[in-house]
C-alpha cells in the first residue's frame, strides 16, 4: 500500500475528493481488504472524536479571570493614547503652573495641620523586571490580591521555603 493511496483514502473519508476521484477510491477500497481495513480504522477514529471534546472550565472565578483582561486592556489603551501636542502643552502650562502652586500650598497646609494624615498615594505595584503584576479585589472578603506573574526569580526565592513541604 503506497502512501499516496493511503492519503487518498483519508481524503475520500473527509469528503475532500472530487466525485470522480471519490468513486475511484471507493472501488479500490471495496476490492482490497487491506485498504478497507485502513478505511475502517480511519473512519472509527474520526467518528470517535466528533463531538467528544472534553468540557473544560476556566480554573479561576469569572471576576478574577476578567480582572486580568480588564487591567491589560486599560494598560494597552493608556499606552496607545495619542501624545499631547506641543501647542496644547504651551496652553496647558499657563493654567497648570499657578494651579500646581496652589495645590502645593494646600498639601503643605494639610500635612502641617495633621501630620498623621494617611498616605495620599493611590494603590501601586512595582515588581522586578522579570515580573508583571495583576491586581484583583475580592468583594466578598474585601481582600486585595496581587498576582505576581511568571518570573523565575521569585519562584526560586520562595522555593527555598515551599520545596521543603512538597509532596512527601
Amino acid at each position: 500500500m503506497n502512501n499516496e493511496l493511503e492519503l487518498k483514502i483519508q481524503s475520500w473519508l473527509d469528503g475532500e475528493l472530487s466525485a470522480a476521484e471519490a468513486k475511484q477510491v471507493a472501488a479500490q477500497v471495496t476490492a482490497d481488504t487491506a485498504l478497507s481495513g485502513l478505511a475502517t480504522e480511519l473512519r472509527q477514529t474520526k467518528s470517535a472524536l466528533v463531538g467528544n471534546e472534553m468540557d473544560l472550565k476556566v480554573p479561576e472565578t469569572r471576576e478574577f479571570y476578567w480582572s486580568k483582561i480588564a487591567r491589560q486592556i486599560e494598560h494597552e489603551e493608556r499606552k496607545s493614547a495619542a501624545p499631547v501636542s506641543v501647542p496644547f502643552m504651551v496652553q496647558f502650562r499657563k493654567f497648570f503652573i499657578p494651579l500646581a502652586g496652589v495645590a502645593a500650598v494646600v498639601a503643605v497646609g494639610l500635612l502641617t495641620l495633621n501630620p498623621s494624615v494617611p498616605s495620599l498615594s493611590s494603590d501601586s505595584n512595582a515588581s522586578s523586571g522579570e515580573m508583571e503584576t495583576v491586581t484583583y479585589r475580592d468583594q466578598e472578603s474585601g481582600m486585595t490580591v496581587v498576582w505576581l506573574k511568571d518570573r523565575e526569580e521569585s519562584q526560586a526565592s520562595t522555593a527555598d521555603d515551599t520545596s521543603k513541604v512538597e509532596t512527601q
Binding site: N125, V146, A156
Partner: peptide, 25 residues
Amino acid sequence: GNNKIISTNVHTLPLTLAGNDKNDS
C-alpha cells in the same frame, strides 16, 4: 527574595501577594 526585591506594593489590608510555584502549585 535572595536579597533581591521581588515586588513593592502599596495597598489597604487585607492583602494577598501570590504567584505560581513549581509542579502546578
